[in-house]
């Protein structure tokens, strides 16, 4: 159980915080990053939805290969890949175990593997697209395709507030720790300590709710005087905001090439 101890030592909240902010703000200059959000949305519509209805294994493998290449190109953070694989493995794994219990056998479970493949193609497609968009780009793109202005504002606001919120939450959490008392016994598998921490995580939201309430009030008042309640969905404002979006040659090229690959795959199989 010392593993847990060293792990918690390594994974200080401070580091998690930095990793979190890195994931949220760290955007690399990749090829995909330079594409117009509309291209990416359209591309996602094809690669994030259609594979669900494809049952041909070679096509799925071909798509997966293509997306792995793109995922590497997009320089997706390893943390995300890790979470993705873990999720897929555990879900598939538990189906498998219970399936066996109900009298299935391992070879018959192959279609399940296919489902996992399918789901990973879809997840990779969304990761590739949405990791390649900076918050500004995503909110502009959403605005362009008709999502209400409040949503795209909220994305920007979330990026604005995240560090402040994390900081404040961390402070409150620490205050609980500095004045509290950790259970003397660890309990089975550190369960007492775990329970203690989770309880603090929950309790810390009470002070946070009150202070975020104060913040929201000033924020909304300021918005009011900044004209945004009037401007969120005003066509003129939208047009000004989005005037920098243009479809370039590389957008057309990227989209048509990927589609050709897709079609070729289906054709070949």
């Amino acid at each position: 159980m010392d593993v847990v101890k060293t792990l918690t030592d390594k994974l200080s909240i401070e580091q998690v915080k930095i990793e979190l902010l890195n994931t949220a703000y760290g955007y690399h200059h990749t090829f995909l990053q330079r594409l117009d959000p509309r291209t990416l949305f359209l591309w996602y519509l094809v690669f994030g939805v259609v594979p669900f209805f494809i049952h041909s294994t070679p096509v799925l493998i071909g798509l997966a290969a293509f997306l792995v290449v793109l995922t590497i190109m997009a320089k997706v953070s390893p943390l995300i890949i890790f979470i993705l694989t873990l999720g897929l493995l555990t879900q598939g794994g538990s189906y498998l175990i219970v399936g066996l219990f109900f009298g299935g056998n391992v070879t018959a479970m192959l279609p399940l593997l296919k489902l996992t493949l399918k789901l990973s193609v879809i997840s990779m497609a969304s990761i590739v697209v949405f990791c390649s968009m900076s918050p500004e780009k995503l909110s502009d793109g959403l605005l362009k395709i008709g999502v209400p202005g409040q949503v795209s504002f909220s994305i920007g606001y979330a990026y604005r507030m995240l560090p402040t919120l994390v900081e404040e939450y961390h402070h409150i959490f620490l205050s609980y720790r500095l004045r509290g008392k950790k259970p003397a016994k660890k309990g089975l598998f550190y369960s007492r300590h775990l329970f203690y921490y989770i309880k603090l995580l929950i309790k810390s939201f009470y002070p946070l709710m009150l202070s975020v309430a104060k913040r929201s009030r000033t924020m909304v008042e300021a918005l009011e005087s900044k004209g945004s309640l009037y401007g969120f969905n005003h066509p003129k404002v939208k047009q000004l905001k989005l005037q920098h979006l243009t479809i370039k040659r590389r957008d057309v090229l990227f989209f048509s090439l990927s589609i050709s690959y897709f079609i070729a795959l289906i054709w070949l199989s």
């Binding site: 504002f153 606001y157 402040t164 104060k214 929201s216 000033t218 300021a222 945004s228």
Partner: peptide, 14 residues
């Protein structure tokens, strides 16, 4: 108007 808690008056990330 610049608020006393002016930090909350800033609403964009950049």
């Amino acid at each position: 108007y610049v608020y006393q808690d002016f930090e909350n008056q800033l609403v964009s990330p950049r």
